[in-house]
Write a protein that binds this DNA or RNA. Sequence first.
DNA 1: CTATTCTACTGAACCGGGCAAGCGCAGGGA
DNA 2: TCCCTGCGCTTGCCCGGTTCAGTAGAATAG
Lengths: 347, 347
Amino acid sequence: MVKVSSGVGPIPRATMGDVAKRLGISKAAVSYALNGQPGVSSETRMRVLALAKELGWYASSSARALSGAETGVVGLVLSRPSDLLTIETFFIHFLSGVEKVLTERGSSLLLRVIGEHPEAEINTYERWWGERRVDGVILVDERHQDLRLSAVERLGLPAVLCGGPIKGSSLPCLWTDQGADATKVMEYLVSLGHGRIAHVSGPPRFVHERTRRRGVRRAAKTLGVVVETHEAEYTGSQAADVTRRLLDQPGPPTAIVYASDVMALAGLGVASALGVPVPAQLSVVSWDDSYLTTLVHPAVTALWRDTPAYGALAASMLLDLVDGRNRGRMQLPASTLNVRETTAPPA
Amino acid sequence: MVKVSSGVGPIPRATMGDVAKRLGISKAAVSYALNGQPGVSSETRMRVLALAKELGWYASSSARALSGAETGVVGLVLSRPSDLLTIETFFIHFLSGVEKVLTERGSSLLLRVIGEHPEAEINTYERWWGERRVDGVILVDERHQDLRLSAVERLGLPAVLCGGPIKGSSLPCLWTDQGADATKVMEYLVSLGHGRIAHVSGPPRFVHERTRRRGVRRAAKTLGVVVETHEAEYTGSQAADVTRRLLDQPGPPTAIVYASDVMALAGLGVASALGVPVPAQLSVVSWDDSYLTTLVHPAVTALWRDTPAYGALAASMLLDLVDGRNRGRMQLPASTLNVRETTAPPA
DNA sequence: CTATTCTACTGAACCGGGCAAGCGCAGGGA
DNA sequence: TCCCTGCGCTTGCCCGGTTCAGTAGAATAG
C-alpha cells in the first residue's frame, strides 16, 4: 500500500477485526451488527455501530466482492474515435442519467473510452467479467450484426442493450421508436409544403441510422414526396460537405433533416456561407436536440427526447437484471418535435 | 453470484486453484508462473500459461486487491450541476486523455457525476478510500478555499490537483499559465486597435477564473487600455444576458472575451440578433477552443490548449504518485491563439 | 565422499469480510 | 428435576489471490 507522503499521516483504515478487538467480541458479531442481521443484542449492535462510525470504518469492497457478493460496479464502454466522441452531447446527457440511478442504488460506473474496435470492446467485457470487476454492462450504439450480443451471452455477463428489439435473445433492451419519429418529422415538413427533402444520416453501421432511414423512406412513400438519404460520419465537416453538394446541384432540396445537432449546425454554417437564407429558402431540422440548437441564430428545429431518462432507465434495468429481475424489452416514449426558427414553408 | 438467465449457460470462471489442480501442482507455483516470478521451471511456466489461456483465466481483481496490491482503479468526480456539465466540451476531451493513459497502464476509471455539493464530493472520496475502491483520485475544477485538498491529505488518499500551484502542500498539481494566456489575448486585441474591451468570465468560485481575471486586469494596465470583467455562469443564457447589456449601453465595447466556447457562441447569437456585425463592429474571442468554434459562421477566434494532453498528464502523474513517485508541480505549455473570423480592427 | 548451494517446488498463513455450525446459558413447560 | 427452545455469541472455514518459510533432490565445490 503506497501512501501519499504528506505532512500529516494518513488515517489507518479500520477493519472489522479492529472493531471486534476494541470491543472484545468476535468478528462475526461485528459483521452481524453492521449488516443488520439477527444474532446480536441491540445493545451490542449499538456499540458496534458507534465504534465503526468513530473509526470511519467502511467495508472493503474487495473483501465483500471476494466472498461472493456483487461488486457494486457497472461498466460502460464508449467505443468511438475520440474526436467523434467529443461531438456527441448525447453521451454526457446519457451518462448523467445513468449516474443518477447508480448513485441512488449504491453502485458506481466504470468507464472506458476506446477507439472503434469491436474486438477491443469485447475484450474489455471479457476482462471485466473475468476479473470480477463489474456486475454487468450497458451496451450503447447498437451496430449492424453486433458481435457484442453473443459475446455477453457467451460470458454470462449481465447486460442491457440500448437498441433493439432483438429477436431470439432474452437480453433486456430499450429503444426509441425511430419510425414514429421519422413520420413526425416528415409529416411536419410536408404540412409546411416541402416536397424535395434531403436526409443527411449518420453512418449505416449503427442500427438506429438504418431504422431512421427506413422510417423516412416509408413516410415519404405514404406522403407522396421525394426523399434522398445521404450518409455521413457524425462530424461537422462531413455534414458540411454533403450540404454543399446538395445546395450546389440544380433543383436543391427545400428542407434538410440532419442526424445530429452538430451536423445541423454545420449545415447552417454552409447555408450562411453560400448566402442561402434559412428558413426562407431552406428549412433545417435536427434529429437530435441539445443546448446547441438554441444557442445559434436562427435556433434549430429539432426532435427532442429525454436522454438522461434513457440513461436512467438503462441503468435501472441493468441493476434489476443483476438482482435477478429481467425487465425484458421496453420502448421509450416518442420524441417531441421542438419547432424553432429554421423551418418555414418553402419559397 | 447472480447469473443472467440466458439460454446458454455462462462459462464458469476459472481460478488459480483450478489451474493448479488440473496440472497437479500447487497454487503458489501457478501464481509464480503467471506473475513472471522466479521459482518455477520454464517448462512448468509454459504449461501454466497455456492452460490459463485455454481456460480464459483472469486474476480476480478483488482477490488481488485484498492481498495488499493496488486496485488498478482511479477515481474522478465531476461536481457540477448536470445541465452545466453538458455544456463543457472540456471534460470529455480531458476524460479521453485520462482514459488513454489509464488504459496504457492497465488501470480504469471510476466516474461519479454529482451536483455541486462540496461535501458530497468529499464523502465520495472518503467512501472510495475507505472501501479500498480506488488507488487515487484526480481533482478537477480547483475552487476558492478548496476543502478537498485537506480532505485527501487527511485521508492519505493519493491525489493530483488540476490547478494550483498550491503553497504548503506536497500534493502534485498541474496548471496552465492563465496570466500568460491573458496577456496573449489582450496584446492581440490591443494590436488590432481595440481600446474598450469586455471580459465575460465564469464564476469566481473557480480559481482559474480568478487567475484569468487578475491576468486580464494586469495586462490591461500594462497596455493602457480599459477592461471590465463581468461574471456569469457557464451557460449560454447568462452569457447572452451579459452580452445584451454590454451592447445596449452607450459606448459599447469593441471586443468581448468570453470564458468558454459556449458563452462565445451565445454572444455571437445575441450580436446577430441585435444586428451588430461581427467582426466589423464587434470582435469576439473565446478563452476555450473546441470544434464548436469552427462549426459556426463566422468561425470564432479562440485560445487553444491540448486538453487531452492535460488529462493524460494528470493521469500519469497520479499513477506515478500511486507507485511512490511524486512528480511535484508541473506547468502546462501556454495556449495558442487560433485567429479566425470573429476578430478585426474596430470600426 | 561429504558439505554446500541452488532449483523447483509445496504448505500454510494472510488479506477482510460473510456465513454455517456449534455452544453456553437463561427461561419456560412438563 | 429434566428437557426443550432460543438468544447471543464464538469458532472456523470460505472466497482467490500473494507471499514467506520451508524441503526434497540435483548440481557443484572442496
